[in-house]
Design a binder for these strands. Structure first.
Length: 511
RNA sequence: GCCGCGUUGGUCAAGAGGUUAAGACGCCUCCCUUUCACGGAGGAAUCACGGGUUCGAGUCCCGUACGUGGUACCA
């Protein structure tokens, strides 16, 4: 599949700037990117903004932000033009008409003057029980108003008059259209069931069908990867390639399996419903202020996000699951991408994140945790101290946001103490133990080992099992039943603070 | 409805005719730890169903069922 007749590998991701970038979109980018990098090729970002009615302010910038966060930077794009620009389809408008006209000249396309009302009428008139959605196909086109049914003079007249019209492809009859897909292998369609898709819209903009083919050709794309939702329209693209540039110039296709939600197709509603993010980053639709949560803000590391996406539909064939970008590039192969859709499992996604937090250094995690704590009003006076804390608690964090709960008590007294956990077994002896303990630790040198020794000696002396005292001590210092070793915590928060927290807890317990 | 694509445990999946059908997540049991987490040991699938082909099929073929995508002057 290293099709070197194409020369340098060039792939593209071509999103429409209409809203958030979801899991499936990012994974499409990822596979494109991995493939390009693996083969020393280039990854191009092309903005498919041919539908002006769906333009959304900020959506294009948002895509760049997401790709940037994910570490999937395009080699060529609207903000980093190469020699195949422009990279925004609306700016290439003039090019498409030329190709559409060429198709007409060669008899592979035609002008259609039907109004949307007429089309609706047609769909209604020809609707039957067996065929609820009639297509503009060989049978129907003969009964519609187009350059195939009206005279050349009349067509010319209509065009001169500036009559609104579209250009449609003329699909061949009784042909089997077959092509090879890198993932699905041979796929074929009967040309009769494919309708005469609009190629050039009345506003002069191309539809996706014309635009992909023309741009992939002009941008020298060698491998075209896209979601499986495009598979059904592939025959249109194949025909356009055949008519316009020749099948031998056509890129290799790969239709990526879909990522599914808990019940069927994954959509942004699933996220809200099941409590997991669907977009790469937070997105608020400027049209209606609808908010959709992103993986970044949820507390995912980009490494983990990319990693989990890679494994959703691809497998190296080994037992390895944690891959860095470099490792993915090295191991990726499009043949090992699965055919079937994969259901997204948030539990597994979180596991990937936890694994990545575990293997990340405190230096790497520091800015993220630092920002988190600062936003929550925690005063970080000492960076090295925070880094030490990060190393101590990171294996307890699944999301970056967990660092707040896991680390905050190192900086301030816990707001709430889970006294219910110790109250039932609380007694006078324990109170006096902790009172004595506060006195005893006053004079010692403040090391973890020393604190523990004093604690245990006193317990033995007072004939209480140290184990029965450790949980109370933990609750006093941390607030709850979690966190690293208690004596380590005491050591880190300091003698004064330790005594203060114990005494506070004591008054609460005895009131 | 029609067309396309798909179908190995709850989920992600390995498996390219002959294996006791890997592994991971989640779940459960136990060990470690008198916290939580980490770590460690263990438990739970006959491969959607039905026919073939074959000495032998999860692996090949055909049906059926189910899922999913398309069926727009949206991408």
């Amino acid at each position: 599949m290293m099709n070197n007749s194409f020369g340098k590998v060039r792939v593209r991701f071509a999103p429409s700037p209409t809203g958030g970038l979801h899991l499936g979109g990012v994974r499409t980018v990822l596979y494109n990117y991995l493939f390009a990098k693996k083969h020393g090729g280039e990854f191009i970002l092309r903005i498919e903004d041919t539908d002006q009615t769906r333009f959304v302010e900020g959506a294009e910038q948002y895509i760049y932000d997401c790709l940037n966060w994910c570490g999937l930077e395009p080699d060529e794009s609207t903000i980093k033009p190469g020699e195949y620009g422009p990279y925004r389809q609306s700016e290439r408008k003039a090019m498409y008409r030329e190709y559409a006209e060429k198709l007409i000249k060669d008899g592979h396309a035609y002008y259609a003057f039907d109004t949307s009302e007429e089309l609706e009428q047609m769909r209604n008139d020809f609707k039957t029980e067996e065929n609820p959605s009639p297509q503009y196909d060989a049978r129907i086109r003969a009964r519609m108003k187009n350059s195939l049914t009206i005279s050349a003079e009349e067509v010319e007249k209509l065009l001169q008059a500036g009559t609104r019209h579209v250009i449609r492809i003329k699909m061949p009859e009784n042909e089997i259209i077959t092509f090879n897909d890198l993932i699905h292998h041979e796929v074929s369609f009967e040309s009769n069931v494919v309708d005469d898709k609009v190629l050039l819209k009345a506003d002069g903009m191309p539809t996706y069908h014309l635009a992909v083919v023309v741009d992939d050709y002009l941008m020298k794309i060698t491998h075209a990867f896209r979601g499986e939702e495009w598979l059904s329209s592939a025959p249109v693209h194949i025909m356009l390639w055949k008519y316009l540039f020749g099948l031998n110039k056509m890129p290799e296709w790969a239709h990526l399996p879909l990522i599914l939600g808990p019940n069927g197709k994954l959509n942004k509603r699933d996220g809200a419903k099941y409590g997991f993010p669907v977009y790469a980053m937070n997105w608020t639709d400027p049209r209606n202020n609808e908010f959709t949560e992103g993986f970044k803000e949820k507390g995912f590391l980009p490494e983990a996000f990319i990693n989990l996406l890679a494994m959703l539909g691809w497998n190296s064939g080994t037992e390895k699951e944690i891959f860095s970008m470099e490792e993915m590039i090295e191991n990726f192969s499009i043949e090992r991408v699965h055919k079937s859709g994969a259901k997204f499992d948030y539990e597994k996604a979180k596991w990937f994140n936890q694994e990545w937090i575990k293997i990340s250094t405190s230096d790497y995690l520091f800015p993220l945790v630092s920002e988190l704590l600062k936003n929550k009003g925690v005063d970080i006076h000492d960076d090295d101290f925070l880094k030490k804390i990060i190393d101590l608690v990171k294996e307890r964090c699944v999301l970056i946001s967990d660092f707040y709960e896991q680390a905050v008590y190192f900086f301030q007294s816990p707001e709430k103490l889970d006294l219910d956990a110790i109250k039932p077994k609380w007694n006078e002896a324990k109170t006096s133990f902790f009172e004595s303990f506060c006195n005893n630790i006053n004079e010692i040198s403040w090391t973890t080992a020393e604190i523990e020794t004093v604690f245990k000696n006193l317990a033995t002396e007072m004939n209480i099992k140290p184990g029965e005292l450790q949980l109370p001590m933990r609750i006093m210092l941390v607030g709850g039943k979690f966190g690293p070793a208690v004596f380590e915590i005491a050591h880190l928060i300091g003698k004064e603070e330790t005594i203060l927290r114990i005494k506070n807890a004591l008054t609460l317990l005895n009131s």
